[in-house]
């Protein structure tokens, strides 16, 4: 519960920071450009501070503050859950880095391949099959048919 509490505090803190920055930035703007950011920023700052305070002061009751939204699964052992969360976040950020470094057309099949082999521990046949399909999608549909401008990977940009 301690970590969840911390996260609540941090999110509210982040919202308060965003509001503070918005208000600060609006100081340099002409009135009409600044009005709406201020009208939004002031209550955001105040309410975020209130939420910060509440998340420190009050222990949350089970059903209180229920949002119209889904909740993360609680069936999994917290230690395992934590490990898996960090792993998937690593994969997501890694995918982004891979795209930046090698460009979309290479990064997509490569990522699919690596994920299936390392994280999924799938067999070779399935891995290669799905990698092939992903490559087909990427190259056939988005690259050749739609001609999306995929930037060259930084790795290749350095060489050329």
């Amino acid at each position: 519960m301690k970590t969840a509490l911390n996260l609540r505090f941090l999110l509210a803190f982040a919202a308060a920071l965003a509001a503070f920055y918005a208000l600060y930035a609006s100081l340099h703007w002409p009135f009409r450009a600044a009005l709406f950011p201020r009208v939004i920023g002031i209550p955001l700052l105040l309410l975020a501070l209130a939420e910060m305070l509440l998340s420190v002061l009050r222990e949350e009751k089970e059903r209180e503050g229920h949002a119209v939204d889904f909740e993360l699964t609680t069936d999994v052992d917290p230690v395992v859950a934590r490990k898996r969360t960090l792993a998937i976040l690593g994969w997501i950020v890694g995918f982004l880095l891979l795209i930046v470094l090698t460009g979309f057309p290479i990064a997509v099949p490569l990522f699919v391949f690596l994920y299936l082999r390392i994280a999924g521990r799938e067999g070779w046949v399935l891995t290669i099959l799905i990698t092939g399909v992903s490559w087909l999608f990427m190259d056939g549909l988005f690259n050749r048919l739609l001609h999306l401008p995929f930037p060259q990977g930084w790795l290749f940009a350095l060489w050329s």
Binding site: V133, L136, F137, G140, L141, R144, L145
Partner: peptide, 14 residues
Amino acid sequence: LTALLFFLASLWIP
């Protein structure tokens, strides 16, 4: 879908 993709991709290959 893959058949369609093959077909459409073939149109674009120089």
